[in-house]
Structure formats: C-alpha cells, structure tokens
C-alpha cells in the first residue's frame, strides 16, 4: 500500500529518486562548484583589457566598440569567480589593494569607525555577537595587515593568495553580507520601496534570503547599502549590448555614500573602486 503510493509521487521515471537525499544533491552541487574553482580562482590575475576584447572577438560589434571605449580610461581587468559572491569579493580585493598601495591610514581609521558602527547596528537589531564577531575580526585583521611596517604586514602577493584562500576570502565576503544586511534593516523605510520593486518580499525576507546567504547575487540595493555603511564610494561601469541612435557609449553609475552627499558636490568625488558589470557578474577594473 505504502509502496504503491510512493510510486505515484516518483513519477514514471525508472530511477528511484527516493534514494537521492537532499544532502546528496547538495554534495554533488558543491562538487560541481569545486570543479569550477579550478577554472577561475576567487580572485584572478590582473589582465590587460585586451583580454576582455579577446573574449568577444567574434561576438557583438557593439560590445567590441564599447571595450575600445573602455580602453581610453581603463588599463586592466581582474576577474572574480562567478559564484554569486562576485560583487562582495571584487569589493574586498579592490578595497584592500587600494589601502595596500596608498597606505592611507586616515582612511583605515575612518573605515574602522564605520565598522564599529556596523557592529552596534547589528547588536541593536538583536543579532547575537557570536554570530558575526568572527567575520568582523577576520576583516579587521586583513585591514591591519595591508598597512606596512607591522609584524603582521603582508605583501601584494600575499593579499592575492589570501583572497584565493577560502578560509579568509569567504569570511570577509560574509562580513560584508552582515554589514549590508544591517544597513538595509536599520534604514528599512528607505530601502523598502526598492526591495518591493525587485522581489515583492519584505525587508526582513529580502535580507534573510538575498543578502545574508553566501552565493546570493547582489543588485543595486546591496551596493547602495554597503557603500553607505562603510562610507566608500563605488563606480560601476556597465558593459552590455545596449546602444542608442546617437551611437555607442559606455555608461557608468557612481554609488556615493550618503555621508558624502552633503557638502561637497558629489560629482567631484572620484571613486577609487571601479567594478565592471556584465549582466549577472562583477569584475574589477583598473583606471589608467
């Protein structure tokens, strides 16, 4: 009796799907992801922009024209893995690399103060400290280590290595996810209309299903929230097939943190983090 009913649920296939448990499927899924990992590291090597053109050599003429335009302002690209964390991963590397190269201690102090604010935000929202503190301390550790002249200082090569090491890289990505979620929840009235337009979910549902879980892709909402929370401006350059009658141009959008929008005109702010967006994916761009 029981057997017969089960058959009904298992459709007409001769395969016994009953024997595949969800965790088997999850294991298989992560095995496929691991296989992909050998193809593209979390953070790739810096490549000349010509490597991007090579990808499309027999592709859309609009894209090739846009890449040519990009070459006027940008010299190189650094790819990140397309695992749903590419926005956060690109931001992580780009930001830490910027601090490593500029040794801007004023910026480090500024961002550390913002990180402390984020910690308070999460506490205020009722998150238990132990759920996020490991991710916060790992990020602060990386931030301190890119400042030179300390025992724990690291080289550029080591930064690349760490960004490719899952135990560092994923923890820092998760730190940004916590910060982003905290900012969205704290200013839920501001973010609610954007979120409703995107998903029809409540702010709480959106944070739980589209911000906090690893591997969930990021959109404008997450970028605005992260940029605001940390006070770091981000430029996103869009590379897609769109064009208008007056010709081909490459669009970009600057995400200027709300704290910087008052006072000086926001058009004077030049973001030092530039990401290249192709539908569904973010990579890092380097200005000339």
């Amino acid at each position: 009796m029981e057997k017969e009913e089960e058959k009904g649920c298992n459709s007409s296939s001769s395969l016994n799907w009953e024997s595949f448990r969800d965790d088997d499927i999850m294991h298989q899924h992560s095995a496929i992801l691991d296989e992909e990992a050998f193809k593209v590291p979390f953070v790739g090597d810096k490549e000349p922009l010509s490597a991007l053109a090579a990808e499309y050599h027999s592709g859309s003429p609009i894209l090739l024209e846009k890449i040519k335009l990009l070459e006027e302002n940008y010299s190189a690209i650094r790819r990140t893995r397309g695992d749903g964390n590419c926005f956060f991963r690109s931001f992580m590397f780009s930001y830490l690399e910027h601090i490593l190269e500029t040794q801007d201690k004023v910026e480090v102090d500024r961002v550390m103060a913002n990180v402390e604010e984020c910690r308070k935000t999460l506490q205020g929202l009722g998150y238990a400290d132990f759920t996020f503190e490991d991710f916060f301390s790992l990020f602060l550790e990386q931030l301190e280590s890119v400042i030179q002249g300390e025992d724990a200082s690291i080289s550029h090569d080591e930064l690349v290595k760490r960004s490719r090491d899952q135990s560092v890289s994923d923890y820092v990505v998760m730190f940004f996810r916590f910060v982003t979620s905290g900012e969205i929840r704290k200013r839920s009235e501001f973010f609610e209309p954007f979120i409703l337009g995107l998903t029809n979910a409540t702010v709480d549902q959106f944070c739980k299903t589209s911000v906090e879980p690893m591997g969930e892709e990021s959109d404008h909402v997450q970028i605005i929230a992260l940029s605001d929370a940390l006070g770091v401006p981000i430029r996103v350059v869009y590379l897609d097939r769109s064009s208008c009658e007056t010709g081909v141009s490459v669009n970009h959008h600057d995400f200027i943190p709300c704290a910087l929008q008052n006072g000086e005109s926001s058009s004077e702010i030049n973001p030092y983090i530039t990401l290249l967006y192709r539908p569904g994916h973010y990579d890092i761009l380097y200005s000339k």
Binding site: D22, F130, M174
Partner: peptide
C-alpha cells in the same frame, strides 16, 4: 537548512 542558510542562524 539548504540554500537560504547563513551564519546569522544558530
């Protein structure tokens, strides 16, 4: 317990 997991859960 599947794709919507995050470390915010305990």
């Amino acid at each position: 317990l599947k794709n919507a997991w995050s470390p915010a859960w305990t």
